[in-house]
Amino acid sequence: MMWSKKHILDMESLSVEEITAILDTADGLKEISQRTIKKVPTLRGKTVVLFFHEPSTRTRVSFDIAAKRLSADAISISASSSSLVKGETLVDTARNLEAMKPDVIVIRHSSAGTPFLLSQKVSTPIINAGDGMHAHPSQALLDMMTVREVKGRLNGLRLAIVGDISHSRVARSNIIGFSKMGAEVRLAAPPTMMPTGIESFGVTVTYDFDEAIDGADVIMMLRIQKERQRNFLFPTEREYSRRYGLTLERLKKAQPDVTIMHPGPLNRGVEISPDAADSVGSAILDQVTNGVALRMALLYLVAGGMRNADDH
């Protein structure tokens, strides 16, 4: 297909065909990272701004490496190093960045909807690298890429997502993405971590971990943010771990070839026991590896790599 989507803002706005095209492209680009010289000239002369308004290591580095492997020039800006600390509004900062003619702006922001706001204000393609509790499309897409790689398909798979669904953009994007691709999604969390109305996304909701992972092909564990304890979401890590932590013992409920995923960073011993995290079915590091390929695919598609390739 010819790529026509300008921005990557969330999973809702991507069609099944577009998701498939992204995953196929990422599969094709993955090989570049296995070469001795891990660089192709595809995006040579293109500029990618990595505008990270919220702390991030994994996602920022992943986008940075992805850009560099495609020969794009990547520039990182963080909240503390930008004019935002001098009182400039986000929209002004983005307009200033745009005036320097970048080809893509990748944005991470703590406020939901910020990438959408920027897409209304600037004409540069925007890739959402995570906005508040709203969306994290590149994470969901790399998760889908990883599952498709291991299982050969997404359609008909049983996916269990366990943890703080309420505060998780990863969960929201995966719920929408996997459902769209025909997977059956089950959620498990204490009621304090289950957002209002989530059933209407077409998922099954339970407070019982074992019920959620019963027969699951894929289990996705979400990071427990310790600061949430202050908001009375759970009593203690000890109690949380006992009721919602993934252990080898619990894994027996799932399919024998279950794939275990986690968006990172891990709280070993809280939401996942060390032996479960390192077990045969764990795809946690594959997710990270695939993250680079997937982000290469996103940059390639929105920065017009396809059109470039046609030109040559």
Binding site: A112, G113, D131, G132, M133, H134, R172, P195, T196, S200
Partner: peptide, 13 residues
């Protein structure tokens, strides 16, 4: 408002 729209948009309700 806490509700489906807030959940969809990822906004605190």
């Amino acid at each position: 408002n806490e509700g489906l729209t807030a959940t969809r948009l990822g906004l605190a309700g």
